[in-house]
């Protein structure tokens, strides 16, 4: 039982190991603050060869070259935004894993919220209409039915009172 518990713990420990990092030792900057910034920037830049990995995760040659450029620019004193701009100027917005919020992407970012609002609006309208409508829109009882109903409710037929 104890060995099983230990096994379980070990298993959990290994499950939480993150994905392998593509950054190679010689790429890492001596300045740890700059290196940390480089890592953050690398995480938002797409590797254009694999397209669904960031350049921080990718082993592709182009990703490595871009990682080196990011570090070069930072060392040269560029701000984070300037570095990202350097890359988008050459590869376009597609290189950003998270699309920017601008006029051409309003629909992309606002679309889901607009759909949700539209849905709620439609629901509210539907509920209002239902409440406003006649609750029971059926034909009235005939005289015969009324008489039978009265007989039933007077208890003459031997039902429980």
């Amino acid at each position: 039982m104890k060995t099983l518990a230990i096994l379980m713990v070990l298993l959990c420990a290994f499950t939480f190991v993150g994905p392998a990092i593509a950054v190679e030792p010689h790429e890492i900057l001596k300045d740890s603050v700059l290196e940390a910034r480089a890592r953050e920037i690398s995480k938002v830049l797409r590797c254009l060869v694999c397209q669904n990995q960031s350049i921080d995760d990718s082993n592709a040659g182009l990703a490595r070259d871009l990682r080196l450029i990011v570090r070069e620019r930072l060392t040269a004193g560029d701000s984070d935004d300037a570095v990202i701009q350097f890359v988008t100027k050459r590869y376009g917005d597609f290189v950003l894993l998270k699309p920017p919020f601008k006029s051409s992407t309003y629909l992309l970012w606002g679309g889901p919220a607009a759909f949700l609002l539209f849905g709620f609006g439609a629901l509210i309208v539907a509920f209002r209409r239902r409440r406003a409508a006649q609750p029971f829109d059926t034909a009235p009882l005939t005289d015969d039915e009324i008489r039978r109903l009265e007989n039933l409710s007077s208890g003459d037929q031997g039902g429980a009172s």
């Binding site: 060869v49 070259d65 050459r90």
Partner: peptide
Amino acid sequence: LKGRAAIEWGVYG
């Protein structure tokens, strides 16, 4: 040789 000019041209393939 270093692929830097290709990056200037936005080459990826």
